[in-house]
């Protein structure tokens, strides 16, 4: 396949940046999207141009490190991560626009790499169950209904890639946060901190400069793990409950 790539290049956080066009040939449909970028980078290196910086690590769709905007869609046209997107989703002659995630809470570091530390700070503010090492009771001490455990698992599938924020017209991080709150809130072990967790995390979310949610659902549509919108509603409900409890 022959393609035309339009890639956002930005030398550093302070640089203004802009789109640069690169033609590329010899792309096979068995390549993953990132392998296609590897080929581009090999070519750039041979020509003495600095390769395009992009993040990736596991390349099997689970670490959440990769993620770019492809033709205006987070992770591209399929519901998967960028590393698991394969070139068979494109056609010969296509023009592909590649941009970094855009949100003020995700400042660009270089080219397609952004800083998603804001997501870590949301977790720091309460996205955990406090269980000091060695203090745990036997795992079978508290049975958990299978449905609850399954829902928790569904929410816990979040890989923290940030596609939800990138896709959201308001650059909101509610799906990410709702997933964590739903995951921990489904377990008996998560109850003691449930109120404090939602209060603290939602506060941190706003402090980081994410936008508010308008329930449009773009986040869930972009989520490579298919996390449903109801985790946001769950979080909203939990917040109301927590505020009642505190009042």
């Amino acid at each position: 396949m022959k393609l035309t790539l339009k890639i956002w290049r930005q030398n550093g956080p302070e640089d203004k940046g802009g789109v640069v066009t690169y033609p590329i040939e010899g792309v096979s449909e068995d390549m993953s999207f990132l392998e296609m970028l590897d080929v581009l980078n090999e070519g750039l290196t041979a020509k003495g141009e600095e390769p395009v910086a992009f993040d990736s690590d596991c390349r099997e769709g689970i670490c959440g490190m990769c993620g770019v905007m492809i033709n205006g869609e987070a992770h591209g046209p399929e519901r998967t991560t960028t590393c698991q997107l394969h070139m068979r989703s494109f056609r010969d002659g296509d023009e592909i626009v590649i941009e970094p995630w855009r949100a003020d809470a995700f400042p660009v570091i270089k080219d397609l790499c952004v800083d998603r530390g804001s997501l870590d700070r949301i977790i720091q503010s309460g996205g955990y169950i406090s269980a000091n090492t060695g203090s745990a009771p036997d795992a079978h001490a508290t049975p958990v209904p299978k449905d609850d455990a399954d829902r928790a698992f569904m929410a816990a599938e979040c890989i923290g890639c940030g596609a939800c924020v990138a896709a959201c017209p308001n650059a909101s991080g509610m799906l990410f946060m709702g997933a964590k709150i739903t995951h921990l809130g489904e377990f008996p072990q998560g109850q003691p901190e449930r109120d404090a967790r939602v209060l603290s995390m939602t506060g941190q979310h706003d402090e980081e400069g994410f936008g508010g949610c308008t329930n449009l659902g773009e986040c869930s549509r972009a989520c490579p793990k298919g996390i449903p919108l109801n985790v946001i509603s769950q979080m909203n409900g939990d917040l109301l409950r927590a505020q009642r409890h505190r009042a």
Binding site: A136, P137, A139, F153, A156, H183, L184, F187
Partner: peptide, 9 residues
């Protein structure tokens, strides 16, 4: 035990 206490599903 530790992981269940942390909420590992």
């Amino acid at each position: 035990d530790q992981c269940v206490a942390q909420g590992v599903p």
